[in-house]
């Protein structure tokens, strides 16, 4: 999918909500307890334990990603040999792993990193300290083609789009190479409305009821918002690469 298609999608009323397979899955996590927990959660929503692979660091993960074709990768951010965000970036630079659903597994304390991961192209994120039931719900949402979101992420995105100056200040503080105002992909009014409701603490079902849409549609919108975050970063990266002469103009 190219950028113009993303923009096109942003204009259209309802987002693409293609279902998303969860297997085969790769868990990139160095803590074995968390590994076990994630396997359990995945198993709970019906992922065959045999199709779940584990990697305890980035190197192993890259080798596995080269060898096998995964539908889903759960990536811890703090890995022994680097940041999970770099792994997401690596995946998005490779044709073979470009379309793999990357989900960040993080703790709330690293919320800045979650935002960076979304910019880097993560489809969603899971918070370690949440109940299993919540993790399950989030993964189900991803499976349906949606994306889970928390009020703090909604607030962040609203701030970024609210005013370009604030956006840049916030973005600079959080992520050095975030979209500038020219490169950002505008949100639709509906998407903005959804973000406002999320920021107030409403969950997808409540938003769906309020906007007379299906929960799936709402989650699809959120997924598309995440993609725009990523695309705006990518546009920026392409712009920079061109200005540096790394890409043909």
């Amino acid at each position: 999918m190219n950028e113009s298609q993303w923009v096109e999608m942003g204009r259209s009323g309802s987002p693409e909500t293609a279902a998303c397979a969860l297997a085969p899955a790769l868990i990139v996590e160095d803590d074995t307890h968390v590994q076990a927990r994630l396997v359990r959660v995945l198993a709970e929503i019906g992922v065959d334990a045999a199709s779940i692979h584990r990697a305890e660091n980035i190197a192993v993960a890259q080798r596995l990603l080269d060898t096998y074709s995964f539908a889903l990768v759960l990536i811890d951010i703090g890995l022994p040999d680097g940041s999970g965000i770099d792994l997401i970036g690596w995946m998005h630079r490779r044709e073979s792993t470009l379309r793999v659903t990357a989900v960040v597994v993080s703790s709330f304390a690293t919320q800045d990193l979650i935002l960076q991961a979304l910019h880097a192209g993560a489809t969603g994120y899971l918070l370690k300290e949440r109940e299993d039931a919540e993790l399950t719900a989030s993964l189900r949402s991803i499976e349906r083609g949606g994306a889970p979101i928390d009020p703090f992420v909604a607030r962040y995105i609203l701030r970024v789009i609210a005013t370009p100056l604030v956006a840049r200040a916030v973005a600079d503080a959080i992520l050095p190479v975030v979209a500038d105002e020219n490169a950002s992909v505008p949100l639709t009014r509906r998407e903005e409305e959804i973000l406002h409701l999320v920021a107030q603490g409403l969950i997808s079902r409540e938003i769906a009821e309020r906007l007379s849409r299906s929960t799936l549609t709402i989650e699809g919108h959120i997924k598309s918002i995440f993609r725009k975050l990523h695309v705006s970063t990518r546009t920026q990266a392409i712009y920079q690469a061109r200005s540096l002469g790394l890409l043909p103009r």
Partner: peptide, 14 residues
């Protein structure tokens, strides 16, 4: 209230 509301809503729903 928003984070609590969001979290509890999802838990209750789950």
């Amino acid at each position: 209230l928003a984070p609590l509301r969001h979290r509890m809503s999802r838990l209750l729903e789950a």
